[in-house]
């Protein structure tokens, strides 16, 4: 049984086809990367998966349940977590409260009291190493700290699938390597499938993902194991353009 299945999903904005007839699957506990240049439709794909807006065509299945018409909050209850490209913590709430909100309303939210949520938050604060910022408003953190808080908040939701939007954009190579280790650690300890969206940091993709999906102009171009995908000539073409000899042909 697959964890998530997208079948022929299409989304249009006015005349622009942002996501064009995309079909793919994600298995339990898998780490997958969605790669593609800016404007390829990756963020739209994320928004369709977790229900920020509905798809125009196609179906989305989560653990064999048709969630196509589910609002975002219901999909969260089923076990979808999400981080944003530009971190969006709740600024006036403290770090602890931010993470606790994830625990309170996420997949196990209905059984989690506010006190339990606060205890769970402390566990994740230790995990991301921000103990000294526990009681500070999240709005005052650095961008990388905000990103960590967001990941912790999503983890506290106890998701089965975590969608990470550009988790490593703007980081230096050392931070990227640490983040890769951290994400793998999360997968191994929490047992959740992770879909990371990456614009072009191939270093991260190679070290992190087991499988890669490449999107180009809204369509799914490649769905392969990582090594194969990264050497696929179509992928190289998307990033570097066609080789010169092709132009003459």
């Amino acid at each position: 049984m697959s964890l998530l299945r997208c079948e022929n999903v299409t989304k249009r904005f006015g005349g622009l086809v942002a996501v064009d007839d995309v079909t793919f699957e994600i298995k339990h506990g898998e780490i997958m990367a969605i790669v593609g240049p800016n404007g390829a439709g990756k963020t739209t794909m994320f928004n369709l998966i977790n229900g920020v807006f509905p798809a125009d065509e196609g179906k989305i299945w989560f653990e064999d349940m048709d969630v196509t018409d589910f609002p975002a909050y219901k999909r969260a209850h089923l076990g979808m977590g999400r981080t944003f490209q530009i971190p969006r913590p709740f600024s006036s709430a403290t770090v602890q409260e931010n993470i606790a909100i994830g625990a309170m309303f996420g997949a196990s939210g209905s059984e989690t009291s506010t006190d339990m949520a606060m205890e769970m938050a402390d566990h994740y604060i230790d995990l991301i190493g921000l103990k000294e910022h526990r009681d500070k408003p999240a709005g005052g953190l650095t961008p990388i700290e905000k990103k960590l808080v967001e990941i912790a908040r999503a983890l506290a939701m106890k998701p089965k699938l975590l969608l990470m939007d550009e988790a490593m954009a703007g980081m230096n190579p050392k931070d990227i390597d640490e983040m890769v280790v951290f994400i793998k650690h999360i997968r191994d300890t929490e047992g959740i499938a992770i879909v990371a969206m990456v614009e072009h940091i191939m270093r991260a993709v190679a070290g992190l993902a087991e499988r890669v999906i490449v999107m180009h102009q809204g369509a799914l171009l490649v769905d392969e194991p990582t090594q194969k995908a990264l050497t696929d000539p179509r992928v190289i073409e998307v990033y570097l353009g066609k080789p010169p000899e092709d132009e003459h042909a």
């Binding site: 920020v52 609002p71 909050y73 709740f90 006036s92 709430a93 909100i101 994830g102 908040r153």
Partner: peptide, 16 residues
């Protein structure tokens, strides 16, 4: 608090 700060993010967190 969550929806006051960021309504879309709140929805994604599972908040109705």
């Amino acid at each position: 608090t969550a929806l006051r700060e960021d309504e879309d993010a709140a929805k994604v967190m599972g908040i109705n």
